[in-house]
Amino acid sequence: MLLSKLILLPAAVASSVTVYMHSVPSTSSPQTAVIPSPIPLVQISYDADQTTGTIVSYTPPQGSYAPDHLLRIGLHGNKEGTWMGILASAASFAEVYTKKFVVHLDEKGEPYHVGFSTSDKGVGEELEVLVVRKEAGPKPVLNKPVVLNADGRIDSKEPEKSFLQKYWWMIAIFLVVQLVAGGGKE
């Protein structure tokens, strides 16, 4: 399947990323970790211009862990000891869930973060991959600059008013006078 995507997209450059899993020591017994060091969980092949990726290999967590045991899922950073990812419970890897990996890419198309979520298993695939590229945020819309005249004041040209806007008060006085004058003749 990966080969067919590479053939159909000759101009695209396929990249891959390995997502690791590491056990978080339990508070009841901090010395024992079920998974002693980070192990590869899933290898994902992606094209930075596409919104989906392909699972190359997937090794679900194996071992004796409780459903509430926490697992770190993420990427090793460029610097020694850095970890970019999230925490998930071991119960998230049960067979009843669809697992979704989200690979976040920077402007260069390099992964800088990975996300993980689950949902009830439906008709779709057991594993899904979503690729999200970093985009610039919204920019503020600023007002027009204030233009001053030669005196250093703002030019305040009033918009032209209609006849009713100019003389509404004269019309109102005329109508009141007509009502009062007309009421006295009876």
Results as ranks from 00 to 15, higher is better:
residue 1 M to K: 09
residue 1 M to E: 09
residue 2 L to D: 09
residue 7 I to R: 09
residue 9 L to R: 02
residue 9 L to I: 02
residue 10 P to W: 01
residue 11 A to E: 07
residue 11 A to H: 08
residue 11 A to M: 07
residue 12 A to I: 00
residue 12 A to G: 01
residue 15 S to G: 05
residue 16 S to T: 02
residue 17 V to Q: 01
residue 17 V to I: 09
residue 19 V to E: 01
residue 24 V to Q: 08
residue 26 S to N: 03
residue 27 T to N: 06
residue 27 T to P: 07
residue 29 S to P: 04
residue 30 P to N: 02
residue 34 V to G: 04
residue 34 V to F: 02
residue 35 I to V: 11
residue 36 P to Q: 03
residue 37 S to F: 02
residue 38 P to L: 12
residue 42 V to Y: 03
residue 42 V to M: 08
residue 43 Q to Y: 11
residue 48 A to I: 10
residue 51 T to F: 02
residue 51 T to V: 02
residue 52 T to E: 12
residue 54 T to P: 05
residue 58 Y to F: 13
residue 60 P to A: 00
residue 61 P to W: 05
residue 62 Q to K: 14
residue 64 S to I: 11
residue 64 S to W: 14
residue 65 Y to D: 13
residue 66 A to P: 00
residue 66 A to R: 08
residue 67 P to S: 08
residue 69 H to L: 13
residue 69 H to A: 15
residue 71 L to K: 01
residue 72 R to T: 10
residue 74 G to Y: 08
residue 76 H to R: 12
residue 77 G to L: 11
residue 78 N to T: 14
residue 79 K to N: 03
residue 79 K to R: 05
residue 80 E to L: 07
residue 81 G to M: 06
residue 84 M to V: 09
residue 85 G to P: 00
residue 87 L to N: 10
residue 88 A to N: 11
residue 88 A to G: 08
residue 92 S to E: 12
residue 93 F to T: 01
residue 95 E to F: 13
residue 95 E to K: 11
residue 96 V to F: 10
residue 97 Y to N: 14
residue 98 T to E: 06
residue 98 T to L: 04
residue 100 K to M: 06
residue 104 H to D: 14
residue 105 L to H: 08
residue 106 D to P: 08
residue 108 K to G: 14
residue 108 K to Y: 12
residue 109 G to S: 05
residue 109 G to F: 04
residue 113 H to E: 09
residue 116 F to A: 02
residue 116 F to T: 03
residue 117 S to E: 07
residue 120 D to K: 10
residue 121 K to A: 11
residue 121 K to E: 12
residue 122 G to D: 03
residue 124 G to T: 10
residue 124 G to M: 10
residue 124 G to Y: 07
residue 126 E to W: 03
residue 127 L to D: 03
residue 128 E to R: 05
residue 128 E to Y: 08
residue 129 V to F: 04
residue 131 V to E: 03
residue 133 R to Y: 01
residue 134 K to E: 09
residue 135 E to T: 14
residue 135 E to C: 12
residue 136 A to Q: 04
residue 137 G to P: 03
residue 138 P to D: 07
residue 138 P to Q: 04
residue 138 P to F: 04
residue 141 V to Y: 00
residue 141 V to D: 00
residue 142 L to Q: 09
residue 144 K to I: 02
residue 145 P to S: 05
residue 145 P to E: 07
residue 149 N to H: 07
residue 149 N to D: 12
residue 150 A to L: 14
residue 150 A to Q: 10
residue 151 D to T: 11
residue 152 G to R: 06
residue 152 G to F: 04
residue 153 R to W: 13
residue 154 I to V: 11
residue 155 D to G: 08
residue 158 E to H: 15
residue 158 E to D: 12
residue 158 E to V: 15
residue 165 Q to L: 13
residue 165 Q to E: 11
residue 165 Q to H: 13
residue 168 W to M: 15
residue 170 M to W: 06
residue 174 F to T: 12
residue 175 L to H: 01
residue 177 V to F: 06
residue 182 G to H: 09
residue 184 G to E: 01
residue 185 K to H: 13
residue 186 E to C: 12
